[in-house]
Design a protein around this nucleic acid. Structure first.
Length: 597
DNA sequence: CCGCTCCGGCGGCTAAGGCAGAAGCCTTA
């Protein structure tokens, strides 16, 4: 684990343990924020851990946290962290994750009943002693039992590529309900995060009862958690959705879906509020307050010091119907949802024009039946043409990837002959002969330079030795980037979301080398990969590195994953100019040829 | 604990729903 990740884990734990011991909430939050801040960094904190001034210069890290980072760098541990570990049972943090249980109740379970883990919780439920606690009745316990089952069956956040189609189907369904005027999904899904905790759907309707009824009786619905005036929550079974093969044992079996019925005049305010992120919203509300205003999910109102919310007193909102109106009233331009993460989006003069799916005109990473794809060469080309691309690169695996049917030099030359023949009869699209060459453990490539020089496009990717230590991984990837024939560094970390961490190179060094050697860094658009991840993209964009967004197609439907790669690019503030897939045919091919002297 | 602002001290978002317990707490988002 990298130095940064060691700290992230500790600060996250500290935040939770502090919460359980009843510490000052702002102190709790400071640790949670520090974890988030460090997780977003692309540079190695170990390099500056001794320099308190440099640490404090990072927003979100103050004197106290800086000291702890210094302590960890020197001694390999944080005293306060160890003290907390000694005080708070390890299994209790898991109890805190049970939906419906917050710090107060968990602390009570712990102090009064000696609950130290999930099993302990089950025990006090079974013997009924839990009912002796204040604010703990039969109904609460019943919900807890369902929550524990939910947690044990789902376990982790849902992949973007699984959640998005479900949310779209729900929105479509709600749109068809009588009386519903508008429907949209919000939440982290709208922001394009790589994983989703739950699905938020907003509607406006003239018939709230009908909408509520339609929502809580959707097919696949397993449980109704809430059914109130403006909010309903259900759990939906994911049975029949084929993602077990991607998600492994921990694949979610259910997902929570919230429906919010909002007034037409509050549509924009509600959409903003429920799109988040929470941190972005807090910044907006702080900003509103400085202007003598108050912002909530109903609109932007004048602050008048009253306790009762303004919408309940008939106060007229300054804005609320559209997101644009509200941002404008706060003196801001509309912020695309993907960058609402409190990563400086409110501090820039103007948000750059972010990349869009329609900008993409070329695919540089695709497989055929020659290695582990399911499409023939002809099918691949036809599919790319149907997507209106001007260029498709055929990049099957290299020989080391034997399990994927990787091609040796002889087979790849034969494929090139086949491609050249196909070009004769194909119009409207350029077919490039390339490869996805393995970056071996030591950073050498699976073909020698002389052979690579024969290819139109070279994508170099790590597939093996994905758990090597950070320093080795950095050296390995740097070596691949320095190879004069490499165009694209494919899925640079090799991670699989929720399943495999992948490499943890010093990403700032990788980015600097990519700029120097004119190599594009790939955002692999498959929702299982999505690396570079958003924060890496952001750092790459700031350094002026080229980015490739590729689908790594193995089957026709894989082209549809493009949207997820684009969302990740947008989260990293990627503009079209830096993305090689948006370039004109002439510009792209000129760049590709430049690697051949 | 952080950041702002004046260098030590203070303030740091907002609402709804559910439940338990009869007004308010806890949790979640």
């Amino acid at each position: 684990m990298s130095f940064n990740d060691e700290l992230v884990r500790r600060f996250e734990q500290m935040a939770q343990m502090l919460e359980l011991t009843g510490a000052n909430p702002f102190r709790v939050n400071a640790h949670a924020r520090a974890a988030r801040t460090i997780d977003d960094l692309t540079s190695d904190l170990g390099e500056i851990a001794g320099d308190a001034k440099a640490l404090i210069a990072i927003p979100g890290i103050g004197k106290g946290i800086a000291e702890k980072i210094g302590e960890f760098a020197e001694t390999g541990k944080i005293g306060e962290h160890l003290d907390l570990l000694a005080e708070v049972p390890a299994g209790l943090l898991r109890v805190l994750e049970v939906p419906g249980l917050g710090p107060k109740k968990v602390a009570l379970l712990w102090k009064d009943l000696g609950v130290e883990d999930i099993d302990g919780l089950k025990r006090v439920i079974a013997d009924g002693s839990i009912l002796g606690l204040p604010r703990m009745g039969a109904k609460t316990v019943e919900n807890l039992i369902a929550s524990i089952a939910f947690m044990e069956s789902s376990g982790q956040r849902l992949h973007l590529g699984i959640a998005a189609p479900i949310a779209e189907a729900i929105v479509e369904r709600m749109e068809s309900v009588k009386g519903v005027k508008r429907a949209a999904y919000a939440g982290s899904l709208r922001r394009g995060r790589e994983t989703i905790g739950d699905i938020d759907v907003l509607i406006t309707t003239g018939d709230p009862d009908g909408a509520r009824e339609a929502f809580t009786t959707m097919p696949g619905m397993t449980e109704v958690l809430a059914k109130g005036e403006s909010k309903s929550s259900v759990r939906l079974s994911l049975e029949g959705i084929d993602h077990a093969r991607w998600g492994g044992d921990g694949a979610a079996a259910q997902v929570q879906v919230d429906l919010r019925i909002v007034p037409e005049a509050s549509w924009g305010a509600a959409l903003m509020y429920f799109s988040g992120s929470k941190e972005h919203n807090v910044r907006l509300r702080e900003r509103a307050q400085k202007q003598g205003l108050t912002l909530n999910e109903y609109g932007l109102y004048p602050e008048d010091g009253e306790d009762e919310p303004p919408q309940k007193r008939g106060v007229k909102a300054k804005a609320g119907k559209t997101e644009e109106d509200i941002y404008a009233a706060l003196g801001l331009a509309w912020v695309p949802p993907e960058i609402r993460e409190d990563r400086g989006e409110l501090d820039v003069e103007q948000t750059p024009r972010l990349i869009e799916a329609g900008d993409i005109r070329a695919e540089l990473h695709a497989h055929t039946t020659a290695s582990d794809g399911s499409m023939s060469l002809e099918e691949l080309v036809a599919e790319a043409k149907a997507r209106k691309f001007h260029t498709i690169a055929v990049t099957d695996h290299s020989k080391s990837s034997a399990q994927a049917g990787g091609l040796d030099e002889t087979r790849l030359r034969a494929q090139r002959a086949q491609i050249e023949a196909l070009r004769e009869t194909t119009t409207g699209i350029e077919i490039l002969c390339g490869c996805e060459v393995d970056i071996l453990g030591d950073g050498s490539l699976d073909y020698d330079d002389g052979f690579l020089a024969e290819l139109d496009v070279v994508v170099a990717s790590p597939h093996v030795a994905l758990s090597q230590e950070p320093k080795k991984a950095t050296a390995r990837l740097l070596k691949a980037i320095e190879n004069p024939y490499v165009h694209v560094l494919g899925h640079p970390t090799g991670r699989l979301i929720n399943r495999r961490k992948g490499l943890e190179p010093a990403m700032d060094e990788i980015i600097a080398a990519a700029v120097e050697h004119d190599v594009a860094l790939e955002i692999n658009a498959h929702w299982m990969r999505l690396d570079l991840r958003d924060t890496h993209v952001r750092a790459a964009v700031e350094a002026g590195a080229k980015i490739a967004i590729d689908c790594d197609d193995h089957a026709p439907g894989d082209f549809d994953n493009l949207v997820y790669g684009v969302l990740t690019g947008r989260r990293g503030w990627l503009t079209p100019e830096l993305c090689v897939n948006t370039w004109t045919k002439a510009k792209l091919h000129k760049w590709l040829r430049s690697k051949h002297g």
